[in-house]
């Protein structure tokens, strides 16, 4: 900078040509700079479907009137149809009165066959590429609950293997959920029936909830999810299994589109051993109520000190 403060000599002809060279250079810099800027942003032309005015202006789930929600559901159905050539049935099912869902998993029954993982993927329209699953099954050597000794990638010919037990983990639908507390935009919250849901249209994708979850239950769409047309489940719910977009969180929601219609979750129905049990804890006649009263029930060992009060229990019956 100091050098530029020498008083310029503007009288000689040589200086004039230098000045014009300078002007040409400056002009060229400005022009090529703009060209580089434009070219640098060129990848963005593939972004045409990133968002739409309708989606951009959409209000928070809690502030949508019934008519607005109807329009939103129509938009979703339209988008799904465009992408998958399939008219989905999109609903916004509300929690039922007097219902609080609880899940219990019998560790002495689970054989680690991972059918729950894939039934969940199919039911909830999870991306096949890149693949994304809500349920993790950890193979644990008998005699420990130290998860660092677990194996997530076991692939023997047959399960169960001697000397191991299997521990499926998914969202625990905590009564004191750390993920809800940390969300900066209230895109995730706990519903009256105990399900912690995500409004995919409101999530900004900061992944703070993912860092906060002590159960590794939340998943992020690092890329645009891809589902084969023939595997799309057309029975959809706004807070549940409607197709997600790139850059938002998702997680287990107890198959909200099924359970709020009275049905069992998909992971439960596919479980060949009946290790998975689900129901309304407020109903004294429900099997889940019976299990919590009669069985040796515990919440996720080593994680109880998190104070999250899960609605997902493990139990043993022999």
């Amino acid at each position: 900078m100091s050098a530029s403060e020498n008083k310029p000599d503007s009288s000689s002809g040589g200086s004039m040509s230098r000045r014009s060279f300078l002007r040409v250079s400056a002009g060229a810099t400005a022009l090529t700079g703009l060209a580089a800027l434009a070219a640098g942003l060129a990848p963005l032309r593939e972004l045409s479907r990133f968002t739409s005015v309708e989606k951009f202006l959409q209000k928070h789930y809690h502030e949508l009137s019934p008519e607005q929600m109807k329009r939103v559901l129509e938009r979703i159905a339209r988008e799904v149809e465009q992408q998958y050539d399939l008219r989905p049935h999109v609903r916004d099912l509300k929690p039922m009165d007097g219902v609080e869902f609880v899940y219990a998993l019998n560790l002495s029954r689970c054989i680690g066959c991972r059918r729950c993982v894939h039934a969940c993927v199919a039911e909830n329209n999870q991306s096949g590429d890149p693949d994304l699953e809500y349920i993790r099954v950890v193979k644990m050597p008998k005699g420990t609950f130290d998860l660092t000794k677990g194996d997530h990638n076991y692939e023997p010919e047959e399960v169960p293997e001697d000397g191991y037990f299997y521990m499926p983990v998914q969202c625990h639908q905590c009564a004191n959920p750390p993920c809800v507390k940390v969300c900066p935009v209230e895109a995730t919250w706990q519903e009256a029936d105990g399900i912690t849901v995500i409004d995919y249209d409101w999530c900004i994708g900061c992944r703070y909830c993912q860092a906060a979850c002590p159960y590794f239950a939340r998943r992020f769409n690092f890329r645009k999810p891809r589902i084969p047309k023939e595997r799309l489940n057309p029975d959809m719910s706004y807070l549940g299994n409607r197709p997600r977009e790139s850059g938002v969180m998702e997680k287990c929601h107890f198959c909200i589109q099924r359970t709020r219609a009275g049905r069992y979750p998909a992971c439960l129905e596919v479980c060949p051993t009946g290790a998975r049990k689900f129901g309304n804890i407020l109903d004294p006649d429900s099997e889940i109520n019976y299990i919590l009263k009669e069985k040796r029930v515990f919440t996720f060992i080593l994680k109880e000190d998190q104070g999250t009060l899960p609605r997902f229990f493990y139990y043993l019956d022999k």
């Binding site: 060279f21 700079g33 060129a42």
Partner: peptide
């Protein structure tokens, strides 16, 4: 070399880098 000439050369260099960047990006 005069300061102005140096400036012009630097600017030209920057312009060339920008042009190169534009081509690479594209």
């Amino acid at each position: 070399m005069k300061e102005e000439t140096k400036t012009a050369i630097v600017l030209a260099g920057v312009a060339i880098s920008f042009a190169g960047l534009a081509v690479v990006f594209f």
